[in-house]
Every structure is written in structure tokens, then in C-alpha cells.
């Protein structure tokens, strides 16, 4: 669609600008403010320059949290994306069962995040949870509050449970947009199932898959509530991801300076990924209108 140049459109955007600026820019400035100052209490602040940034960049604790965070994001992407595509390929194309699948698959997406945590906390308990109980009876040692491996497995399975449907639904939406004529052509050419997937379905899904991957990376990168409820970041620090660590630092220990410096670096990473996301989105829009 051809857009007209109209600078008065600013008036339509103004309410959004004011509202989001109030809830985004003001707090962000507070963070910037703290990140360059030090305090000894009593609301007296001193200029500290880039000291906090220096400290955080040399802090083993932050690098560890970042490492765990990246490992977590990588693992869940490696599971959720192929699984989501696989599920989408197996979904009914239309009719009653397609609706049933859509509704049931969307269910985990709409559950409050702390309830997701609660569900898995209960589900994994050896005494009262189905999963924990079954594993225990099978003779597999499983204790997500004590055991490093069990804690990671629980957090990852929980995330797969929670979000694979999102990838599947997006991939499904991509598949739906493939005209029937394409499939008829593959039948005439007697293309193998793999060839159909590789040369027709995958290219057509490319755009939505990029969105799905970026969304999942983004949301997993700032995951807080679910692991916090299930493991509380433990055992030890083994499931303390970036957000959990940050909240611990800022609200738990009230280390304002380091926490603020941490926040800003965290935010810069997010900004970078957002930019990639935005580029993908606008390219997708262009392709759509160019059709």
C-alpha cells in the first residue's frame, strides 16, 4: 500500500509516545543514573564514572549467568524449533480436528507464567507429582531441587512444554499460506516427501520461522518467573539465569550501582536482537506487498 506523507500523523501517535515514554524512558534514565553513581545510604550519591561497568565486566558471577543463559537459550531453540516444525507438518490442514488442535496447543501459551512453574513444580515432585513419581518408581534418581542435571532437565522440558506450540502455530500459519497448486505440482513431479519439505515448505516457512526463532530467543533470554518458581535458581546457582540474577542483585541485595550497570548491558543486547527482529519483519512486509 502506498503511504502518504503526512507529518500531522504525529498527533495520532502522540498519546502512545507520551505513555510509553513515561513507562520506559523515565525508568531507564533512573537506571542510567544509578549506573554511574555510588551511595553510602541516606540518599547521598557520588559520581562513580564507569566503575560499575568495569566491575560487572570483570565479575565472574555475571559471566557465569550469561553462560548459563546462552546455554539455556541454545538448548531450548535446538529442541523447540525442529519439534515445532515437525508438529506443524503433522497437524490436520482444516476442519474440526484442526480447530481442536489449535485450541489445545494454545492452552499452555495462555497460562500465567508462575502457574506454569507451579504446574511443573508439582508434576516433578517425587511424592505427589506424576512425572517425579513415575521416574522414581522406574528407579531413575530424580530430584530437581538437589540435583544439577534434574534441575536443568526440568527447566528445559518445562520450557519445551510451554513454548513449542508457539513455534508450531507460527510454522503452521506459514504452511497454510502455500497454495494447493504447489502440492499438485510436486505430485506430478513425483517429488519425495523430503524434497517437498526442503524445496517448498521450508522456503515458504522461512519468514515465520525467523520470527519464531527470534521470539523464542528473546523470551528465553529474559526468562524469570518459571525457573524462579520451580528451582529458585538452584541448586546452588545452577539455574540462575540473567533475569533471576539481576532481580536478586537489585531487589534482594539492593546493590543499585552494579545492578544498574548490569541492566544497561542487558538492555543493549536486547536492543541488538530487536534490531535484527525489526529487519526481518520489515523484509517480510516488503515481500508481502511486493507480491
Amino acid at each position: 500500500m502506498e503511504k502518504t506523507v503526512n507529518h500531522k500523523a504525529w498527533f495520532l501517535v502522540l498519546p502512545v509516545l507520551v505513555l510509553v515514554a513515561f513507562s520506559a524512558v523515565v525508568p531507564l534514565m533512573t537506571v542510567v543514573n544509578y549506573s554511574v553513581q555510588d551511595t553510602f545510604g541516606n540518599n547521598e550519591f557520588f559520581w562513580a564514572g564507569l566503575e560499575w561497568f568495569d566491575e560487572m565486566l570483570n565479575s565472574q558471577r555475571m559471566w557465569d549467568a550469561l553462560g548459563r543463559q546462552l546455554a539455556f537459550s541454545a538448548i531450548i531453540l535446538a529442541i523447540e524449533v525442529p519439534l515445532g516444525i515437525f508438529v506443524a507438518l503433522n497437524m490436520p490442514k482444516k476442519g474440526f480436528w484442526a480447530s481442536v488442535c489449535l485450541v489445545l496447543m494454545a492452552l499452555p501459551l495462555l497460562i500465567p507464567w508462575n502457574v506454569v512453574g507451579t504446574i511443573w513444580q508439582i508434576f516433578g515432585r517425587v511424592d505427589i507429582g506424576l512425572l517425579g513419581y513415575t521416574l522414581d518408581k522406574l528407579g531413575i534418581p530424580y530430584n530437581y531441587t538437589q540435583d544439577f542435571f534434574a534441575a536443568w532437565a526440568t527447566v528445559i522440558i518445562m520450557d519445551v512444554w510451554h513454548w513449542t506450540s508457539l513455534v508450531a502455530l507460527l510454522a503452521y500459519a506459514g504452511l497454510q499460506s502455500i497454495p494447493d497448486a504447489y502440492y499438485q505440482a510436486t505430485k506430478i513431479d513425483q517429488a519425495s516427501r523430503w524434497a517437498v519439505f526442503r524445496f517448498i515448505e521450508l522456503p515458504k516457512m522461512q519468514g515465520v520461522l525467523m520470527i519464531a526463532i527470534l521470539l523464542r530467543f528473546m523470551d528465553s533470554f529474559m526468562i524469570y518467573t518459571e525457573p524462579f518458581v520451580v528451582t529458585g535458581g538452584g541448586p546452588g546457582n545452577s539455574t540462575t539465569f540473567l533475569s533471576i540474577d539481576l532481580v536478586k542483585m537489585a531487589l534482594g541485595q539492593f546493590d543499585l550501582g552494579p545492578a544498574a550497570a548490569f541492566s544497561i548491558m542487558y538492555f543493549l543486547v536486547i536492543l541488538l536482537i530487536s534490531w535484527v527482529f525489526y529487519t526481518v519483519m520489515t523484509n517480510l512486509d516488503k515481500r508481502e506487498t511486493g507480491r
Binding site: 502512545v16 510509553v20 513507562s23 520506559a24 523515565v26 525508568p27 531507564l28 533512573t30 537506571v31 528473546m218 533470554f221 529474559m222 524469570y224 540473567l242 533475569s243 533471576i244 539481576l246 532481580v247 537489585a250 531487589l251 543499585l256 545492578a259 541492566s263 542487558y266 538492555f267 536486547i270 536492543l271 536482537i273 530487536s274 534490531w275 527482529f277 525489526y278 519483519m281
Partner: peptide
């Protein structure tokens, strides 16, 4: 784009400033 970055912003970054604001 700026709006998008706010959708993507980690709530953990904003928790403390919001509390004080």
C-alpha cells in the same frame, strides 16, 4: 522500532526503577 524494543525489554531491568518511580 523503539516501540518494538519496549515489547522486548526484560521486565527485570524495569522492576527496580518502576518501584521507585
Amino acid at each position: 522500532f523503539w516501540l518494538l524494543t519496549n515489547r522486548m525489554a526484560p521486565p527485570a531491568v524495569f522492576a527496580l526503577p518502576f518501584f521507585q518511580l
